[in-house]
């Protein structure tokens, strides 16, 4: 269970998060929508402690993340997979070694044979051919880097997964594959996920609930139907283009 309670965060005088209240239940997939630059990435970086709130609290499984010690924080982070918006791969290592670093259990990490099979599995899960493992990150396309980043995030069998725009920049087929992967991880492994996205229809498909971040606060949380039926100006404006398509599909 992830809970954000009145989280404030500003960079200099620029207020990014202005009292965010938001919670995700165990086993649930929540999509986080919002215009570019509203602080979606900033928000999910609070969950694994990469950023600390100026005010408010972030709880994961009841433990307050900002006040955790070094070791406890490291232990918590091994339970939370984080797929960076740009991949953030270690560029001095091959793709396979990148994914291997995601294996959090020390005994498994040292077991070469296990690592090799796990790396191959993860590559397959993100729909990449096995020989990509030998390449260096600089040799990959943007979309491939993003998928390797996701493979690295899932390699350690995390209980929580935070995806930062997993489908943006991907072609429709791979975007669908990614949505399918998120759904599969949820159903088979009961992973709790937060999916940051611009892709309204994609997120309606994968998510149990959808949240809209606007002007530093969560403007609306609800199911896809709630969103389609919403009267709120801001919500409608954000969904406008996609709602027309969705309504046409329903009709």
């Amino acid at each position: 269970m992830i809970e954000l309670k009145g989280v404030h965060k500003c960079f200099g005088r620029h207020v990014v998060l202005d009292g965010v209240d938001f919670s995700v239940d165990k086993g649930e997939t929540v999509a986080l929508l919002g215009p570019s630059g509203t602080g979606k990435s900033v928000l999910i970086k609070h969950i694994n402690g990469l950023l600390k709130p100026d005010r408010g609290d972030v709880l994961v499984d009841g433990a307050s993340v900002p006040s955790l010690g070094r070791r406890q924080l490291a232990a918590l982070r091994t339970k939370i997979g984080y797929a960076f918006q740009t991949g953030a791969l270690f560029d001095s290592m091959s793709v396979a070694e990148n994914i291997r670093l995601g294996i959090s259990d020390e005994a498994c990490f040292r077991d070469r044979a296990y690592c090799r099979t796990r790396v191959a599995e993860c590559l397959e899960l993100v729909n990449l051919p096995a020989d990509v493992g030998r390449l260096m990150p600089a040799q990959l396309s943007g979309g491939m880097r993003k998928r390797v980043g996701i493979a690295r995030a899932i390699a350690g069998h995390p209980e929580y997964l935070l995806y930062d725009e997993p489908t943006s920049g991907l072609d429709p087929i791979n975007a669908d594959a990614m949505d399918a992967l998120i759904a599969q991880l949820q159903q088979e492994l009961h992973v709790t996920s937060i999916v940051v996205s611009h892709d309204v229809r994609g997120s309606f498909k994968v998510a149990d609930r959808v949240a809209l971040l606007h002007a530093g606060r969560i403007r609306k949380v609800g199911t896809a139907e709630d969103f389609v039926a919403a009267k709120d100006e801001v919500v409608r404006e954000f969904l406008e283009r996609d709602i027309q398509v969705l309504e046409a599909e329903e009709a």
């Binding site: 990469l50 490291a74 939370i80 960076f84 953030a88 791969l89 270690f90 560029d91 959090s104 350690g156």
Partner: peptide, 10 residues
């Protein structure tokens, strides 16, 4: 963000 990525892996 490679240092953040390392930290995010615990």
């Amino acid at each position: 963000e490679q240092i953040d990525a390392l930290e995010s892996l615990g």
